[in-house]
Simulated scan of single mutants.
Amino acid sequence: MRNSPRWSNGSVNCRLEWRPSRLLQALLMLLGVLGAVSVLASEMPRPLAWVVALGALAYGAWRARREGRKARRAFWFPGNDRTSNVDGEPMFEARLHWRGPLAFLRWRARPGGRWQHAAWWPDTLPARQRRELRLAAGDGDAGRHRRDRAP
């Protein structure tokens, strides 16, 4: 069919910026507050309960601040067989996992090196970019409604 439109060029490139999630920071603070409230509501002796509650508040605040101070990173996912990279450095053994709207990426900076991690929350990865990432990373589940298509 000569006049058929070409639907795909075979490769999808995706450039993403990772930044700390404000939603995650708020949830970490909330967990600290809820931990403190739950300790104070328990039957623990009051002096010990106050110490543990203050510790839970401090730990929640520390984790939220630590998350907020992480440096921004630039990711590049070429749609073909070339190597993906982060901040211009190649990623080895990159693995992308999805949990609903959350995207979790694991990779090594060099072969046999330590694992590094990045997580995109809904406030840092809009739906359009989420779709681009699914396509560029080669996720076989990029189309959710497989039953609607012929095998």
Rank of each mutant, 00 (worst) to 15 (best):
G10S: 02
G60Q: 08
A137L: 02
P47V: 08
L16A: 01
P151A: 07
S38Y: 00
A94I: 02
W50T: 05
A53Q: 15
N9P: 03
A41D: 00
A61S: 12
A150S: 07
G55L: 13
L31S: 14
A118P: 03
E132V: 02
L135T: 03
A41S: 03
Q25L: 06
A137S: 13
N80R: 14
S21C: 01
R19D: 02
R110K: 11
R63Y: 14
R72T: 14
W18Q: 01
L133K: 07
D123Y: 11
A136G: 04
R73Y: 06
A136K: 07
R131E: 07
A26P: 01
R6P: 00
L105K: 10
G112M: 13
L31H: 14
R72Q: 10
A119S: 06
P45C: 06
G140R: 10
M91N: 01
T83G: 09
R114F: 15
L30S: 11
D123H: 04
M44F: 07
R128Y: 04
P20N: 02
V86E: 00
T124M: 03
V37F: 00
R95W: 03
G60E: 14
F77N: 02
L133P: 04
L31Y: 11
A74V: 15
R15Y: 06
R134E: 08
G68N: 07
R106P: 02
P47D: 10
G10L: 01
F77Y: 14
R128G: 05
A56H: 14
W121N: 06
W121S: 13
L40T: 03
P151R: 13
W115A: 08
P126N: 13
R66F: 15
L40M: 15
L48A: 12
F104Y: 15
V33N: 01
P20V: 03
Q25T: 09
A74F: 06
S21T: 03
A41Y: 00
R82W: 09
P111F: 07
R146K: 10
L27Y: 05
P20R: 05
P111R: 10
G55E: 12
R19S: 04
K70S: 06
L23Q: 12
G68Y: 15
S8H: 12
R19N: 03
A49P: 04
R128N: 09
F75W: 08
S38K: 00
A137D: 02
G140D: 12
P90Q: 00
L24T: 09
G88E: 03
A41Q: 00
G113H: 09
P5S: 08
W107E: 06
C14S: 08
L28Y: 00
S11E: 11
W50P: 04
N3M: 07
S8W: 09
W76F: 15
P101I: 10
F104I: 09
G35E: 04
G100I: 01
W76I: 14
G68D: 15
A53E: 10
L105H: 08
A41L: 11
V86Q: 00
G60D: 14
A127G: 11
D148A: 12
P126H: 05
A58D: 08
D141Y: 06
S8I: 09
A137R: 03
G32Q: 01
V39F: 00
G88S: 04
R6F: 03
D141W: 06
G32N: 00
F104L: 12
R82P: 01
G55H: 12
